[in-house]
Simulated scan of single mutants.
Amino acid sequence: MTTPAGQPASTERVCFELRVRPELLDEYVARHRSVPPAMLREIAASGRRNYTIFLRPDGLLVGYFETDDLAASEDYLARSPVATAWERDSARFFADLEGRPDQGLTKLRQVFQLEEQLESEGVHDD
């Protein structure tokens, strides 16, 4: 079964925030212009899709991804030598963070999703 947006019914949307140190913003952005292919493959292999990062000029980072099993995704990345190295090298960019960024992020609660409400109300885009 899929949702109206074409996602598997079990898809979990994960939105999170972190704080990038203002003095490292340019370097952080540059680092993400060309993420190493091995790291890109590990993110995909962990089951994360539609992974997107947004960054405000003051350093507020908001990230989003979809996955069918968040615990399995987190476990996969925690055991990955490639992800471990990337996270170790990335940790210095973040303020008020203990541990790896992928484990110390602040998960945001979803309060609205258009397609879910359209479906629950029987509203169709004809």
Rank of each mutant, 00 (worst) to 15 (best):
S90D: 09
A44M: 08
E42G: 00
S90Q: 15
S73L: 02
D26C: 04
D58G: 05
L25F: 03
F16G: 04
G122F: 08
P101E: 07
R92T: 10
D26T: 14
A5Q: 14
E27K: 06
A91M: 07
Y28I: 04
E115V: 05
P81L: 01
A91K: 06
E98I: 11
W86R: 15
A91S: 05
D102P: 03
T84P: 07
T3Q: 12
R56D: 06
P101M: 10
D89H: 11
L61T: 00
S73K: 00
T67H: 01
V82I: 12
P36H: 04
G59D: 02
R41V: 03
L77I: 10
A85L: 13
G99C: 03
T52P: 13
S80A: 03
E66Y: 00
V62T: 13
G122E: 01
L70M: 12
G104I: 03
T67M: 05
R56P: 04
V20D: 01
S120N: 14
R21K: 09
Y28K: 11
H32L: 14
R13N: 10
A71G: 06
D26W: 08
D126R: 13
A9D: 12
E119C: 02
R48H: 01
F94Q: 03
T52D: 15
P8K: 11
V35H: 05
A38V: 12
P81V: 01
E12F: 09
V14T: 01
S80N: 02
S120M: 06
G6N: 11
T84I: 15
R31T: 11
E17V: 10
A30R: 10
E17D: 08
I43D: 07
V14W: 06
H32T: 10
D68Y: 00
G122R: 07
P4W: 07
P37L: 08
G63D: 00
C15L: 11
W86T: 05
Y28G: 06
P8G: 02
L24T: 01
E12P: 05
E87T: 07
L108D: 02
T84Q: 14
R41D: 14
R109A: 12
T11M: 05
F54Q: 06
G99D: 01
G99E: 03
A30E: 04
R92H: 10
D69T: 11
A72R: 09
F65V: 00
R56M: 07
Q103S: 07
E66P: 00
E119Q: 13
A85H: 05
E121S: 15
E27L: 09
D126A: 14
V62G: 11
Q110G: 08
L114P: 01
V20R: 03
I43S: 07
A95G: 09
P8D: 10
T2R: 14
L97R: 04
E116F: 08
G47V: 03
W86I: 11
G99H: 11
D69Q: 08
A91L: 03
Q117A: 13
L97M: 12
A5M: 14
Y28V: 09
